[in-house]
Structure formats: structure tokens, C-alpha cells
Nucleic acid binder design. Sequence first.
DNA 1: TTTGAAAAACTTATTAC
DNA 2: GTAATAAGTTTTTCAAA
Lengths: 173, 173
Amino acid sequence: MSLDALDVRILRSIAMKETTSPEQIYQETDIPKSTVHYRIENMKKQGVIKNGLFEIDLQKAGLGLTVISEVLAEFSEGYQKKVGKALSEIEGVTDVHFTMGDTDFIVISRLPSRAMVEKLIEEFEAIDGIQRTSSKFVITSYKGDESVGVFRDYSEQTILRSHGLDETGDAPE
Amino acid sequence: MSLDALDVRILRSIAMKETTSPEQIYQETDIPKSTVHYRIENMKKQGVIKNGLFEIDLQKAGLGLTVISEVLAEFSEGYQKKVGKALSEIEGVTDVHFTMGDTDFIVISRLPSRAMVEKLIEEFEAIDGIQRTSSKFVITSYKGDESVGVFRDYSEQTILRSHGLDETGDAPE
DNA sequence: TTTGAAAAACTTATTAC
DNA sequence: GTAATAAGTTTTTCAAA
């Protein structure tokens, strides 16, 4: 199953406006209620949308690659908050935990493809105060592999590309 | 803000039946629709429930302690799946990722209190094939500190106790 | 705070384009 | 895939306890 531009716009709207109401999704996206309804039912059938709370299956939504990173930052007054926020804003990052001990941050990211990992690491290292990062790939997630809010964490473009589509929703030539 | 027995039953029902519909919650819990509605509105006002998709604020729900554990397991045929499942079933565990590299599993748990950490580690180490674990506390989560499904991961008892209540929902003598 | 019943709002199905 | 409408359900409100 592959999502198209309409699906992605609907899923993003669900995540951004935090609603599942066809009426509200219509107001946000201008996609007619009846179409919204039709698409959502389809995505349910195909397992992309998992329940009445509209949890998203990350695999099926094209975000099947999970990366766990340890991020070491240098100490300076108030650095923790600044770095924490900067990490949170990187596309694909879904969890940022500041921990006790020598590692500082544990960051979890969901990406469409291996190609985006390099970009992710670069963005980590571009943050002022970050000293060192160490990332590992997740092979299988036995728990915690769905999410309600992920679509907040990506541009429409990124998701479309992960399904082999350009911004219009057509396959690029 | 503190949840009571009714709130907890409603939140669990939302997580288990995967719905936010007052009608369905009523069928599961026997709490009248209008009461369900009243309680949900209250929890929204207080920030326990965060949006139309009913994401739960873990802090406010009494699950504010996050623990990240590395779990090293010994290799044997098919051990990965067995251990992954066993880890997933431990109360409080919300994420289990099997990774490339020497660490094997990264496990994330949400707990009501420090008192439950010891129990958690014991349960890890009781699993057949687990060699070594290393856990750290999360001090602040800059992202990823809400969840739709958490209430699936606890018994009603555990949540009630974390709010200083016994199984009837009354404060114990 | 709880509740049952009434009113209001919304979703879903249907039809035609 | 869209649009409009009608039918069916559901949520939400409300006044009383």
C-alpha cells in the first residue's frame, strides 16, 4: 500500500489540528468531507490507520526506519534547554530525553529511508554545543511502533517523497 | 490534579477499546455517557488529556518517571523474538527496540514512582537469556512525553496507587 | 458530581455528476 | 474523485437530584 498526496494531506491535518472529524479536516484541507471519509476508511482497511484514535502504523506510513542516537553536549549555562529544543525541531525527531549520566540526550527519530540518516546526523552536529553523537539503527520494534502525532514532525514534501511522489502528488518523470 | 477511580477507568477504556466515543466507553465501563463526557471535559481542562485524539500527558497522569534501559541478551536461535515479547509484557514498558550493534535491546518504560524501578529491573533480569541491563533516568523530556496507548500498559491498581488510592478509589486508611 | 432525556451536531450512505 | 442531500447516529446540553 502506498499513500498519495491526498492521504498525506489528510494524515497531516489529523496530526496538526488534532482531530479526526471529517468536517474539520475538510476546513483545513479543502478536501470534501465525503472524500475525506472515503480515504480514511481506505487507510483503515489497509492498516495505515489503526483504530478510533487514529494511531498510525509507522511502517505502512513510510516511516519504518527508527534511529536511536546518543547526543553528548558541552556544558554551559542553560545549554540543556536550548539544545533540547533545537533537537526537537529537527525533521524526523520524535523523542528527545535529557538523562542523568554521561550521555546527556537520547534522541529517537523515525525516517523514511536510509538516505535521510546522513542529513539527520548533520543537523545534530550543526547544533551549537553538541560535541559528539552516536547512532544505531533499530532492526525490529517489539513495542512502540505506532504513533498518533508523527505527522506533525515532517513536511508534506518529505512524506510524499518517501512514497515516490513529488509535491503535486504525481510520480516525478 | 489527581485522577480518581472513575477517571482511571475511563482512560483505560479509551486505551483498551481504542475509542474516544462516550457511547462505547459507557458500554465498557457502565459509566453513563453523560458522566463520561463530564469527566473527559474535566481532564481536558486540566491538561491530562491533550486533544481530540486524546493524547495523555504522562506527567499529569502520574506516569512522570521515564527510564531508558539497555538490555543485553545472550544469543541463541530465535531468542530475539522471545526476549522482545517478554520485555514488551512487563508492566510499564512502552517501547522495545531491537538494535544493530552490541546493545541488543533499548527499552523505554514509564513509571509512577522510583519505587517501581527496582521491580522493573528485577523483571528484566528474570527473563531467560538476559545477561546484563543498564538503566538511566530521564530528567526532562523535550519531546515525546505524551502517549495515546500508555494506559494499556498498566493494571488499574497500579495507576490508582500512583494517585494514592486503593482499588475502590478511596484513599486507604 | 451524577444522571436520563431532549436537542443539536455530526457522520455515513446514497445518488448523480 | 467530487458534490449535495437525506438518513441515521452520536454527542452534547440541560435541569433535576
